[in-house]
Design a protein around this nucleic acid. Structure first.
Length: 547
RNA sequence: GCGCCUGUAGCUUAACUGGAUAGAGCAUCUGACUUCGGAUCAGAGGGUUGGGGGUUCGAAUCCCUCCGGGCGUGCCA
């Protein structure tokens, strides 16, 4: 942590003089009176020089200006309390403080909508997590590019075209609603009817070979679909820097296969190309009819990015059921000797239905995001019928985002509209309310806070609690950044909002007879507004002006 | 079959990646209030972290085993 980096270095150096190599880590103290704790020493309870080490550490901490109080327990837990002056310095430069030293160029691959199918509940987490990681990384100083990675190729498309042909449906007259009806039917037929299955597969193969007639049909479908996807993404406040799709890299595949074959990296097995990389199960590169698979396309996508995008790292925000696929992809990138880059699968748990079964992504009978959005808007409108449309929309997005991001991404959770739209408790509505309330307070006070100084001796418990909450910003930000886990920040935002509401409710601020107390509280309110806004930015939430 | 994940309060879940007395929200009960926005605040009860064993200063977390749930697994993405 920036705010204690000198202390960290000093302790590490001291320990190394005793031949102890420890990476000093700060945690949130589990003792209420303290802010942070260091636990590295606990394991050296029986070290011969422990007493001497502790004495030296005490001296080091006493010299650290940011520390107001500290204690070292019998078991050598070190508890630290940060002083408020030091917080103020961090506060003023918080956007600099959270920047990392060596910034990275990152491609964030998320969203992954499929053409021919509406965005549905199954896309929600990838979109929410992806957007949040985009914002968090950008704030940390990384150069981030998002790529929506459209599912615009492969069997689903072949099935749709096959179905349209079989039923003599005119693609030129097709509407998005028609199209969305076709896919579930086509998918069903594919599973039940062998003849249709063979037919679809032949279409897939011909598409891979760039059959002109089919490409024309495919293009039309893609245009209709993309238009509809952009509309809903816009409504949900999602933007992407790169709109590449699986189809865009199709042309790179023949050369890739040829190349790998020549290098002896792949060989034919039952008509299909299989990687020679030792693994169980074996990694299938192409189908036995020569057509391409998910993995083939993903490999080609990497080739394309290596050529066209400057990046150090790619994050794939895709659900955890695809773990094996990404292991195979990453193993292959290595084995096939692609230029070295860092790759990571940011996996997340499935959203289950009321019965605890995962939402099916290919059956077409899941709730569309557009419907979910409408329902959420409607629910919020019921709470406050006075809301204008813009505010209503922002609140609906807040609910759909916050409820999703509050859960650890690896956890499977039940999709529950009541939970998503619950107005009381740990919700997006709550954090928006606290911020609106804080802003209104400052406005009503009509006081210019520019040259106001805090009067620390006049602080009451609720003031101190909020400030001590704010001190932890950097800690939670780093936690979220390093682990690609936005939920730490969502939880922290709730905690701060709760602390603010506590202070607000504790006593009437504007009518306080003592001017210094009033100014203290208004200043603290300003700190809260600033951090809350920053946290919302991290999470992809837009603050409302009123509600 | 093999591989991976998972089980925490009535419900939904957190736990800083092995740290101290397992934290929250919902629901339930109690209190504050003609409010600077009550879409609020304060408080209470509720836990053998699925069971058993092990590793060590210390285990929800690591290992073994049993029980329950899920996912993946060569021609979907």
């Amino acid at each position: 942590m920036y705010q204690l980096s000198n202390l960290k270095k000093a302790i590490k150096k001291l320990l190394s003089e005793h031949d102890i190599d420890e990476n000093i880590a700060f945690r949130i103290s589990s003792i209420v009176d303290y802010d942070f704790q260091i636990n590295n020493l606990v394991k050296y309870q029986s070290h011969p020089n422990i007493k001497q080490i502790i004495t030296s550490i005490e001296k080091i901490i006493k010299n650290e200006k940011a520390i107001e109080e500290f204690e070292i327990t019998e078991k050598y837990f070190i508890n630290l309390k940060i002083n408020i002056e030091s917080f103020l310095k961090i506060y003023e430069n918080i956007r600099e403080v959270i920047k990392i030293h060596n910034s990275n160029k990152i491609i964030l691959d998320y969203g992954g909508p499929n053409i021919g199918k509406p965005l549905h509940v199954g896309h929600l987490r990838s979109l929410n997590i992806g957007r949040s990681l985009y914002n968090i990384n950008s704030l940390a100083g990384n150069k981030v590019q998002s790529d929506i990675h459209m599912g615009d190729w492969g069997m689903p498309i072949a099935q749709i075209i096959g179905y349209l042909e079989k039923h003599d449906l005119d693609i030129e007259k097709l509407s998005i609603d028609d199209l969305e009806e076709v896919y579930p039917n086509a998918s069903k037929l594919y599973k039940e009817d062998d003849e249709f299955k063979d037919y679809s597969q032949s279409i897939n193969k011909r598409l891979n070979e760039n059959d002109k007639g089919l490409i024309k049909k495919w293009k039309k479908i893609k245009i209709i679909s993309t238009e509809s996807i952009k509309k809903i993404l816009n409504l949900l406040n999602h933007n992407f820097d790169i709109w590449m799709g699986e189809s865009d890299v199709n042309g790179l595949i023949p050369e890739l296969i040829q190349d790998l074959d020549k290098k002896g990296k792949i060989s034919i097995d039952n008509g299909a190309y299989v990687s020679n990389f030792k693994s169980e199960p074996k990694i299938l590169i192409t189908k036995s009819d020569g057509s391409y698979l998910y993995l083939t396309t993903d490999l080609a996508t990497v080739i394309n990015r290596l050529e066209k995008n400057d990046f150090d790292k790619t994050l794939y925000v895709v659900d955890k059921r695809q773990k094996l696929h990404f292991e195979q992809l990453f193993d292959s990138l290595d084995y096939f000797e692609f230029e070295k880059r860092e790759y990571e699968h940011i996996s997340f748990g499935t959203i289950n239905d009321a019965n605890g079964n995962p939402f099916k992504t290919r059956e077409g009978d899941t709730k569309k995001l557009s419907e979910l959005f409408e329902e959420t808007c409607h629910y919020i409108k019921k709470i406050n019928p006075e809301l204008d449309e813009e505010t209503n929309n922002i609140l609906a997005n807040t609910v759909l985002t916050f409820s999703d991001l509050i859960t650890n991404r690896m956890t499977d959770y039940k999709f529950d509209l009541d939970k998503f739209t619950n107005i009381s408790g740990k919700t997006g509505i709550y954090v928006q309310y606290a911020l609106v309330r804080a802003k209104k307070l400052l406005k009503s006070s009509s006081i210019n806070l520019n040259n106001v100084n805090l009067n620390i001796s006049d602080f009451d418990e609720s003031d101190i609690n909020l400030i001590r909450g704010l001190i932890k910003f950097e800690y939670y930000f780093n936690l979220a950044l390093e682990n690609n886990e936005p939920h730490h920040l969502a939880d922290y935002l709730y905690e701060l909002s709760n602390l603010f509401n506590s202070m607000y409710q504790n006593q009437n601020i504007l009518e306080n007879k003592k001017e210094t107390i009033k100014l203290n509280k208004l200043m603290i309110t300003e700190y809260f507004i600033s951090y809350s806004t920053l946290l919302m930015e991290c999470l992809g939430l837009v603050p409302v002006k009123k509600m």
